[in-house]
Nucleic acid binder design. Structure first.
Lengths: 93, 93
DNA sequence: TCATCAAATTCAAAAAAGTCAATATGAACC
DNA sequence: GGTTCATATTGACTTTTTTGAATTTGATGA
């Protein structure tokens, strides 16, 4: 595993926030527009944007721009990579 | 999954810190005494104790007391539970 | 070009997490 | 009893993360 401790910590931190877990739960039902997430979660637009940036930077979520709108969806590789890493980190050699 | 968002976030936060990842890496080679961890990681005793509490509370690590000493080891169920949860959270329905 | 709308960014404040010296606890041995 | 040693806890402090109003960016359409 090539990741540094700092990179690994950043990845797991992405899952370590209630609001981001709520966002993921919504995205499990399929791609959502940022405006829908803001509305559903009753969250200021800048706060949602902050969390989406974290989720995208860690590869957990992918963003797709369409004109004025941005649609977010769960990256199927991101979660699998994180889960595999987590399992490795907790497996005795 | 019975866990609340707050409980889930707490679990992943346990993995979201460099020092705790280093501790886990050491424990992957087998049970270690707290004093060995403190020494190896060159960390103040109170700081190690703080991190061990977090790892134990989330079920990632188990502590075993033997007289004055406390030995820590990776819980094989803790990591598997966390990995399974992480995978579930990132799986589209 | 100009107005409008969605989303990103900025920035200052608030909240949460981490640090570590000092102290408390509690087991072992005299 | 009292001392010693390992670990936990406390409390004050620093650092990091999160928040949200205000602003900017960037695309759309009149």
């Amino acid at each position: 595993m090539a990741k540094t401790y700092a990179e690994q910590a950043k990845l797991f931190k992405a899952f370590g926030d209630e609001k981001r877990l709520r966002i993921l739960e919504l995205l499990r039902n399929g791609e959502k527009c940022a405006c829908v997430l803001t509305d559903t979660l009753d969250m200021p637009q800048s706060t949602l944007s902050y969390h989406m940036k974290i989720l995208c930077e860690t590869g957990v979520v992918e963003g797709r721009e369409d004109g004025k709108w941005t649609y977010y969806s769960i990256s199927n590789s991101g979660g699998q990579t994180a889960a595999a890493l987590l399992l490795e980190l907790t497996t005795v050699k």
